[in-house]
């Protein structure tokens, strides 16, 4: 483990195992101060389960592409991925920030309960699947079945959305600026009212995009709530 000038510790995955890296990061408790520890992870080379299960406000920057489940179940930490993220980045995240500088593979932010997942590039299929409170901001497009069974939280896409957006959605809110290929079962476009513009503006601000993108260019999608209780006339949607 090297110490660089600015108190950022470097951990190179060429010489350190993911297990040792995670054990180091997980050793910090939730009473850690936010400026106490910063890490830079080198040579990730697409390895899986990097920086999972952190429970402290650490700053972790990963220099390169990561594999599956990077930042899984994160609490409090700020994780920057300077590259692409594999399947399920930030899965079941509770709080904190995960910032993907490149693209994210399928199931980004799956089932996550809180925090912010910011993706500079595109996110592929099932972005925000079964989301439970997280905010996801994607500056590119999102793939098919994004927001599938989204329970709560917000999903914002600057680019286009693939087929079956928001299929079987519950109370999650989706904002898309680009073209939507098709809407999934029980997902409808909804009026973008002032409260939504305010909500969207706050999200853009978190994503450092305030005043760069006009909130009125986005369209809002959410649940028609027709599948909330079974009715035979909706059987075709099942």
């Amino acid at each position: 483990m090297l110490r660089t000038s600015s108190d950022t510790r470097e951990i190179d995955l060429l010489t350190t195992s993911v297990r040792d890296l995670n054990a180091t990061l997980q050793a910090f408790g939730s009473n850690t101060r936010s400026d106490e520890a910063s890490f830079r992870v080198l040579t990730p080379n697409g390895a899986h389960a990097i920086a999972v299960g952190i429970d402290a406000p650490l700053n972790v920057e990963i220099a390169g592409h990561v594999g599956y489940y990077c930042g899984g179940m994160n609490k409090c930490a700020s994780i920057i991925i300077d590259g692409n993220a594999g399947q399920g980045v930030g899965e079941n995240m509770m709080s904190g920030v995960i910032h993907v500088k490149g693209d994210a593979s399928q199931c980004a932010g799956a089932t996550a309960h809180g925090g912010l997942l910011l993706i500079e590039g595109n996110a592929s299929a099932r972005c925000g699947i079964s989301m439970k409170g997280i905010d996801i901001v994607v500056k590119g497009g999102i793939g098919h079945l994004s927001g599938f069974m989204g329970q709560t939280g917000r999903l914002v896409a600057f680019g286009d959305a693939g087929e079956a957006l928001g299929d079987s959605i519950y109370e999650a809110r989706i904002y898309v600026r680009g073209k939507v290929e098709s809407l999934g079962a029980d997902c409808i476009e909804k009026e973008l009212r002032d409260e939504h513009r305010a909500e969207l503006f706050a999200l853009l601000k978190q994503a450092d995009e305030a005043h760069k993108a006009d909130v009125s260019e986005f369209r809002r999608y959410g649940s028609a709530r027709k599948l909330y209780n079974f009715h035979i006339d909706n059987a075709g949607a099942y």
């Binding site: 993911v18 299960g53 599956y68 899984g72 699947i129 079964s130 069974m149």
Partner: peptide
């Protein structure tokens, strides 16, 4: 309405990675 498949893995080859994550988490 709970899903029949897991949201972030499908098949034993991906489950192997999911199990790795759960072990790393604990």
């Amino acid at each position: 309405r709970s899903a029949c498949r897991h949201p972030d893995w499908t098949g034993a080859d991906d489950l192997e990675i999911k199990i790795l994550e759960l072990r790393e988490l604990t």
